[in-house]
Simulated scan of single mutants.
Amino acid sequence: MKQNKYDDPSFFEKYSQMPRSVDGLNAAGEWHLLRTMIPALKDKRLLDLGCGFGWHCRYAREQGARQVTGVDISARMLERARQTTQDPAIEYLQLPVEDIDFAEGTFDVVISSLALHYVAAYETVCRKVFDCLTPGGTFVLSVEHPVFTAIAAQDWYHDANGHRLHWPVDQYQQEGLRNTRFLDTDVVKYHRTLATLLNALIGAGFRITAISEPQPAPDVIAAYPEMKDETRRPIFLLVSAVKPG
């Protein structure tokens, strides 16, 4: 299954109004840690899987990347990315993440931000990323945390007055498809345990170098108070892995 909700006009409009869609990386609660996991990019060739509006692609060029390729399944997302990118060294390709087929050693760095929990063939993507990286290359990815994806409802447990009491975790070991709601739309996501997420990288040949379960930076919470409860449970998992060589 290759899901493309972002080309639905109503969903796209709602997504476009989210803080990280309007204000970019500075409104992403995990960015302060994710950027520390990305290696030095000067003169590097970078691939962004699920590039969306192209925020990470443009950041890579600001950091001196030589060539950047962004891949996304959504025509609407890529249209916005191209409108906001005036740089011939950035190429955008409309392609499902799991269909990438780049030659061995094409890239020095591959990143994927909050895209792979929508992809059924996660292990396949890990192997393809390994193959298209140069020896010594780095794969940095973020996904929704397994604590967040375990229950399809993806919501807090509330008391009778609507106050958030705690985040429920159940059916953690039952991996697979979850029919969830995101921006008032039915969306398919895939729940994987922490072990599965990490072992797929190891099985593809990667050496894991860093793991993070970030909470938003204080300045982000100050700017976006609705994020204050993101300190109570992990919402994202960040992983950095290297192809030996």
Score class of each variant (00 low, 15 high):
residue 3 Q to E: 15
residue 8 D to A: 02
residue 11 F to D: 01
residue 11 F to S: 01
residue 14 K to M: 11
residue 17 Q to D: 04
residue 18 M to V: 07
residue 21 S to P: 02
residue 22 V to T: 09
residue 27 A to E: 02
residue 29 G to E: 13
residue 32 H to P: 01
residue 36 T to N: 15
residue 40 A to G: 12
residue 44 K to G: 02
residue 45 R to A: 10
residue 47 L to Y: 09
residue 48 D to R: 06
residue 50 G to I: 02
residue 53 F to E: 14
residue 53 F to N: 06
residue 58 R to G: 06
residue 60 A to P: 13
residue 63 Q to I: 05
residue 69 T to N: 03
residue 77 M to D: 07
residue 78 L to R: 09
residue 84 T to M: 14
residue 88 P to I: 13
residue 95 L to K: 07
residue 98 E to G: 07
residue 99 D to V: 05
residue 102 F to D: 10
residue 103 A to G: 11
residue 108 D to E: 12
residue 110 V to F: 04
residue 110 V to Q: 00
residue 117 H to M: 14
residue 133 L to T: 05
residue 135 P to F: 01
residue 140 V to F: 01
residue 145 H to I: 08
residue 146 P to C: 07
residue 146 P to Q: 10
residue 147 V to S: 02
residue 152 A to M: 10
residue 161 N to P: 00
residue 163 H to A: 13
residue 164 R to P: 15
residue 167 W to L: 12
residue 169 V to E: 08
residue 171 Q to H: 11
residue 174 Q to P: 00
residue 183 L to A: 01
residue 184 D to R: 05
residue 190 Y to L: 03
residue 193 T to Q: 06
residue 194 L to A: 05
residue 194 L to G: 00
residue 206 F to R: 04
residue 208 I to L: 08
residue 210 A to L: 02
residue 212 S to M: 01
residue 223 A to W: 12
residue 230 E to A: 05
residue 234 P to H: 09
residue 235 I to R: 15
residue 236 F to P: 00
residue 240 S to C: 13
residue 241 A to M: 10
